[in-house]
Design a protein around this nucleic acid. Structure first.
Lengths: 218, 218
DNA sequence: ATGTAAACCATACCATGGTATGTATACCCC
DNA sequence: GGGGTATACATACCATGGTATGGTTTACAT
């Protein structure tokens, strides 16, 4: 899981499949990669469509999937695509991944994560990098999964456990339910909820959920 | 507020400013509009940067702002930009606007809303359309803002009062606060909250808010 | 005119949520 | 070894949320 300078053959015409439910994003990806990077780009608007295309046309050199598109269901759809693509790299493209998502994505066998906040020219490099068998992840995120550093910027200093509890909060679950599912005592859950509200500046769990969603934490 | 075929002069080289915190989106917008549409594109990554650029370089023919970018604060940032752009069109570009946002955006004097789910080639047309002084809004959204008719379909048959209460719920307010602001007794608010939860299939207010947001009710 | 539905209020009860204190363990870093 | 932080649990108290029941008014349609 490294990012760095590698000698990559730029002459190969890579066959790339991109799936995203934002047609505009799709069009622009395709356009950029085709014109500026000389790749052969195929697009899809849902996971099902993407899988169908892979089955019909054979594995692509690199497949990029939007995490929030129809049919993805989190990493479940990712695994489906990986299984279909015959060992070739499948990566996730997303705007604001949470630490929890990062873990799940990489553990699911993805070849990497590309942020939509990344400069466009980096995309082509990332694709070639992944095609060479490496796993790609932006440096910002490496700090994040190594815990404290970058997370401080985005999530108001929520600890791992607090993020976990927050994810249950964001499903509208009760303290008791959360305690059961996480094998904790209810007072402990309350403590975490209180800490979450304090750190997010929320007056109650509902506001915490609202803010977490607005901040893209969940 | 119409969308339709209009004779638009395509020979003019429009000066367009696009602001979005997703650098990749920015790059691709710029690339598409420059290469495929022959526009002169300037980009910014926050509202402050966008405003600075407008001040420094004078009003643009069309300004596109991402609704969720730093500094926007909903329509507040939009109004700032409109004020600076000397009467020229300022539009919002977003992925998934809620009906409430639509109203606010259009009432704030925006020249239109462009969905990120729109095909890329439509973007250039929308920009020229707005530049000609029209307000642009995708047809899908016009249906949604036509109030009652479609709302009944989408909102699980919430009554007017319930929708009002829901909008306060969605801000994380307490029953007592809602009662005060709406000049109601607290039991009445509780009754409405209960009805909202029942109609939405939520187990508590937090789930109701989550569902309302996912359904685009608020 | 009668029925139906929405909105409103009241009282009461119990469940849930949130706060406060105190205690404890483990880990990391200096 | 001491200081900081994250985690965990207990007990207790009070605020808030949610449910139930019952009642009034208005409006609207059959």
């Amino acid at each position: 899981m490294m990012q760095g300078r590698t000698e990559i053959d730029e002459k190969v015409t890579l066959r790339v499949l991109i799936a995203d439910d934002h047609e505009m994003v799709l069009d622009m990806f395709a356009m950029y990669l085709t014109r500026a990077a000389g790749m052969e780009v195929t697009t899809a608007k849902s996971l099902d469509e993407a899988v169908d295309i892979i089955v019909a046309e054979g594995p692509f050199d690199v497949v990029l999937l939007d995490l929030n598109m129809p049919g993805m269901n989190g990493v479940i759809g990712l695994k489906r695509a990986i299984k279909q693509n015959g060992g070739n790299p499948v990566a996730i493209i997303t705007g604001t991944p949470t630490p929890r998502m990062l873990d799940e994505i990489m553990n699911a066998g993805s070849s990497g994560i590309v942020l939509k906040t990344t400069a466009a020219r980096s995309l082509a490099n990332a694709i070639r990098f992944m095609h060479s068998g490496e796993q790609y992840m932006p440096l910002e995120l490496m700090r994040g999964s190594a815990q404290a550093a970058s997370r401080n910027v985005r999530n108001g200093n929520l600890s791992d456990k607090e993020m976990t509890v927050l994810s249950y909060l964001a499903e509208g679950k009760q303290n008791k339910e959360i305690a059961n599912e996480l094998q904790l005592a209810e007072p402990t859950v309350k403590m975490h909820v209180t800490a979450i509200c304090r750190k997010l500046g929320a007056q109650n769990r509902t506001q915490a959920v609202i803010m977490a969603r607005d901040l893209g934490l969940v």
